[in-house]
Simulated assay, not measured.
Amino acid sequence: MGRKRRGRPVDGILVLDKPAGRSSNGALQVARAIYNAAKAGHTGSLDPLATGVLPVCFGEATKFSQYLLDADKAYDATVTLGITTATGDAEGEVTSERDASAITEQAVRDAAAAFVGTIEQIPSMYSALKKDGKPLYELARQGIEVEREARRITIYSLEITAFRSGVQAEVDVSVRCSKGTYIRSLAEDLGQALGCGGHITMLRRTAAGPFTLAQSKNLEELQVLRDRSDFDGLDALLLPIDLALPQMTILELGDTAGYYLMQGQAVQVPNAPTEGLVGLKLNTGQFVGVGEILSDGRVAPRRLVSNMRQ
């Protein structure tokens, strides 16, 4: 018999505003402790330097966090030109310095335009991407550099929101991009295109899938509620599990179809798509999981919640 998890059976998604200086897992563990949640996981790491939107899944929501990993992201960042670092951000050792005072805002805009669209990007050695089971940043800290294959990503928009000229010119950018985009690599590539080098000095994630900063809560706000033992208030901040499926069609199941699907059987659902994965709700509005369209048009259960608390 398995060991029972300690903590409350909390289900739902918390949009956390991750603070600077903490790892994503560190911020997750603090949020989990505040909620006294039995089970929790996050949906895509942010560097310790970075702040902003970090969706945290509690309980049954952890079963569906993989779909948020595939979601598009948005960031605000500051790129300092004229300096390159070993890590591509302000925490790394300076590896080169050049005078960027001749760089103009128009030159930055022209260079940035070349990165919009589908491009190939080589991940940083200081990324969380794994090689033989180890994150690249762990190898980099040991002085080991390995060959990384270029990955195809999409930059939907790269807007220059401010430019401050100088020997170390600064560029504020707003980026919308596909999963797997490394903003520090984008900053390095932009600096290289301008001939002076560059690195990230500020990075804030403003959106992850359907979740935005406007929905986010910081650890201090959560702690105030915990200090009052206001678990109802904490739970009221959680968003529904089905929001983890931003790109899926959500189907409503009738009573009979819902019953048989929850027993693990494929069912017919009117107006279902012809292929792919779909989210599933009962006609009461309760989310029950994810299904897949079979070749005969029926919907088969693929990942279901194991309770009806949600």
Rank of each mutant, 00 (worst) to 15 (best):
D132R: 13
D89L: 03
P273Q: 01
P123A: 11
A102W: 08
R3V: 14
Q263K: 14
S229Q: 13
V53E: 01
A111N: 10
D70P: 07
R141F: 08
E60W: 07
I155T: 05
A112V: 12
T284G: 09
Y182H: 02
N307V: 11
V290Y: 00
M308S: 14
E138H: 12
Q263F: 13
G285V: 05
P135E: 07
T161D: 04
A90G: 04
L280Y: 10
P301N: 08
Q223Y: 08
G143V: 10
G191T: 03
T80D: 03
A112N: 04
A107S: 14
R298E: 14
L139H: 09
D76Y: 08
Y126I: 13
A77Q: 09
A113S: 15
T51A: 04
R98E: 14
P240Y: 02
T78G: 01
T104D: 10
A140I: 09
K281G: 05
V175Q: 01
G166E: 00
A61P: 01
G195C: 13
P55H: 06
E188I: 14
R184D: 11
L129A: 09
R176V: 15
V171W: 00
V108S: 05
V290S: 03
A208E: 02
T118C: 14
L251E: 11
R176A: 10
H42W: 01
C57L: 06
Y126T: 05
A50T: 05
D11F: 01
A140D: 07
V30S: 09
L222H: 01
G180V: 10
S174F: 13
M1H: 14
G41Y: 05
A61F: 06
N25C: 03
C196W: 02
A208Q: 04
R3Q: 15
A114V: 13
G52K: 03
Q265M: 15
R5T: 06
T43L: 05
E93W: 11
R151S: 02
F64C: 01
E220D: 15
E275D: 15
G2T: 15
F287T: 08
G297R: 01
N218F: 02
Q66G: 15
F287E: 01
S174L: 09
G291L: 07
K134E: 14
A86T: 13
F115Q: 10
A300N: 08
A300E: 06
K39G: 10
A50Q: 03
L280P: 04
V288L: 09
Y75P: 02
R309Y: 09
A38F: 00
D172E: 15
Q310T: 15
V116L: 11
T256W: 14
Y126W: 15
G143T: 05
S295V: 10
P273C: 07
R32L: 03
G289H: 08
L28M: 05
T84A: 11
A187R: 03
D11R: 00
L251F: 03
S45C: 12
A37D: 06
L304W: 07
K131P: 09
L203D: 09
V146G: 13
G297Q: 08
G59L: 04
Y35E: 00
E252Q: 13
L277Y: 13
V116A: 06
L186Y: 00
G254I: 01
N283C: 11
T249C: 06
R141P: 01
E105Y: 03
E275S: 11
V15T: 00
R6C: 08
V10C: 02
T206P: 01
G264W: 05
A50P: 00
D242F: 11
L253C: 12
V175K: 00
P135M: 07
